[in-house]
């Protein structure tokens, strides 16, 4: 399986994703420069975290205009696998690939810490190796992670929710919602199921030396899904 990791000026989790995919999961990985519109035949695209173009404007507002995002959008619309992490999630929202928006955290502070996530859906390529209701532990690191939707998007957003912030036992409540996200939503998938955006960083929880390997489950699900799809075709 060939992976592409998008690199914007200001991306800073791009190399972490490359490391996990290449060194830990032994995948083929290429970097996709923001000024190019060539996806180099990749089977899955990672839009990584960081501060694309500095994010001095609304997060992702400039990145969505880049040549590479036009290609990623077309790829997604044709059913290609796209995962946006943190800033990548913000960019996918700005690009209109996912419903909702991300506002500054409720406490107006950057938050970096491990959180627990409850798996809400397992019918997606990103979570097929997980169990519904399973609790996984993955860190967040963001200032603008408060997932929000308009009133008319609420039903769709609740259906789109793949992960919710929860406590160690899987209970979801406002008390443990770290950033004030609507319905504690940490990650959403599009209607077709091939585009996932999430605030937590699975690439930061993919090695025992870092104290957690739950993050690997997402990438492994994607690999499984791809291999199954290839086997059936």
């Amino acid at each position: 399986m060939k992976w592409g990791v998008v690199v914007f000026p200001g991306s800073n989790c791009d190399q972490d994703c490359v490391h996990v995919l290449h060194e830990v999961l032994k995948q083929e990985v290429v970097e996709l420069w923001h000024q190019s519109d060539d996806l180099q035949g990749c089977d899955a695209i990672v839009v990584p975290g960081g501060f694309s173009y500095g994010d001095y404007l609304r997060c992702g507002a400039i990145a969505k205009l880049s040549p590479i995002m036009q290609a990623v959008k077309a790829f997604a619309e044709q059913g290609g696998l796209v995962i946006g992490i943190c800033n990548g999630f913000q960019i996918l929202l700005e690009s209109g690939l996912l419903p909702g928006a991300l506002l500054p955290n409720a406490g107006l502070k950057f938050i970096c810490e491990f959180v627990y996530l409850r798996v809400e859906r397992t019918d997606t390529p990103f979570t097929q190796n997980l169990q519904k209701g399973q609790v996984i532990r993955i860190p967040i690191a963001h200032y603008d992670g408060r997932y929000s939707v308009s009133a008319e998007q609420e039903t769709a957003a609740n259906h789109a929710a793949v992960f919710r912030y929860c406590d160690v036992d899987g209970n979801v409540s406002e008390a443990i919602n770290p950033n004030g996200s609507y319905q504690s939503i940490a990650g959403v998938v599009n209607a077709q199921g091939n585009v996932l955006g999430l605030m937590p960083h699975p690439e930061r929880a993919a090695e025992a030396a870092l104290g957690e390997t739950d993050g690997r489950l997402l990438f492994e699900s994607m690999i499984n899904h791809f291999e199954q799809a290839r086997a059936t075709s």
């Binding site: 800073n12 989790c13 190399q15 972490d16 490391h19 996990v20 975290g49 502070k109 950057f110 938050i111 970096c112 810490e113 860190p139 690191a141 960083h201 690439e203 930061r204 993919a206 090695e207 030396a209 870092l210 104290g211």
Partner: peptide, 16 residues
């Protein structure tokens, strides 16, 4: 204080 700092990026931090 330290939760406001990204202390994990570059995925090398083995002591939080």
């Amino acid at each position: 204080i330290y939760r406001q700092y990204d202390h994990m990026v570059q995925i090398n931090t083995t002591a939080l």
